[in-house]
Design a protein around this nucleic acid. Structure first.
Lengths: 156, 156
DNA sequence: GGTATATCGTCAACCTGGTTGACGATATCG
DNA sequence: CGATATCGTCAACCAGGTTGACGATATACC
């Protein structure tokens, strides 16, 4: 079974399975009333956190410029996933907050990812999936963590 | 060790470790004389194959339009990774072929990925890395394979 | 052989999502 | 109070994707 594998297969397998999950997620999301959610939508909403954030703060959390964060926020606002309100104690700032629909999206995503993981467990067994997660976490921790917010632009 | 894991961690772990590998690859490539190689560079050169391809063919192999393939080819040409020559038996076509430098880039990438994989083996053990690869391959095969050539644009 | 049809590569226009630089408005520090 | 820093926005640009159109060339068919 484990025949000789080349080093370059590892990244292909990682990218391929990542894409599998994300495609499945968005197919499901589209059916559940979120047809124009994109991978970056969830990332940004996650980065926003339960208490929201200012535009600059969002940019810092995602590792992009505040201008890029402003564009992203405008998109999320247009789709109804975030709302903006003036910041009470800093008249320069804009507070971005997840809307009810934004919370829904995250909740739906969490449910779907949970279900996708059980698919993996059914196929591979709970121990193998657990080992896989542990091993990837080990490698990431060994490298001192990894930034993910700017995934979209980084691949270029 | 294997505490309760949430479903949404799996994609984060996959993306994170993929990014880890790709970042390490390009840090190494930059030191080896390929500072402006990008992830898509290697993908495209790989898609070109040892015998090269026409622009339209490259586009089909990467799952993008021929116009996008032409732009990518122009970039690769500018960096000296591919050469274009007229097609002997079809005056409409342009054959794209990897240059010597292009072959070098692929060879260097293969070497580096091989070394990165041995890092993983040193950290996790050969059996765990093999299991990880087998499991990811299983999931990808179960989904009927996955397209990777258009990774850059797909995340959007 | 001649004509219809398909494909090749390019051009143009547009979209998304990044970047940098500049700038007025507002906070904050000394 | 004044110097300095940060906030959000605007403008210009770039990369890399899209669609539509088009002249040039192959191919298929009568």
């Amino acid at each position: 079974m484990t025949e000789q594998r080349f080093g370059f297969e590892l990244p292909l397998l990682l990218a391929g399975s990542f894409r599998l999950l994300i495609d499945a997620l968005h197919a499901e999301l589209a059916e559940q009333g979120h047809p124009d959610a994109r991978p970056s939508t969830g990332f940004a909403l996650q980065a926003l956190g339960p208490d929201g954030a200012t535009i600059s703060e969002l940019g810092r959390r995602m590792g992009v410029s505040k201008q890029a964060a402003a564009k992203a926020a405008a998109g999320l606002e247009r789709l109804g996933y975030v709302e903006r309100e003036p910041d009470a104690r800093d008249a320069r700032s804009v507070r971005l907050r997840r809307s009810a629909r934004g919370e829904e999206l995250l909740a739906a995503s969490a449910r779907i990812f949970e279900r996708l993981r059980t698919d993996w467990v059914r196929e591979l067994g709970a121990d193998r999936v657990g080992a896989l997660e542990d091993d990837l976490a080990t490698m990431i921790a060994g490298a001192g963590g990894v930034r993910l917010g700017d995934l979209p632009g980084w691949l270029r």
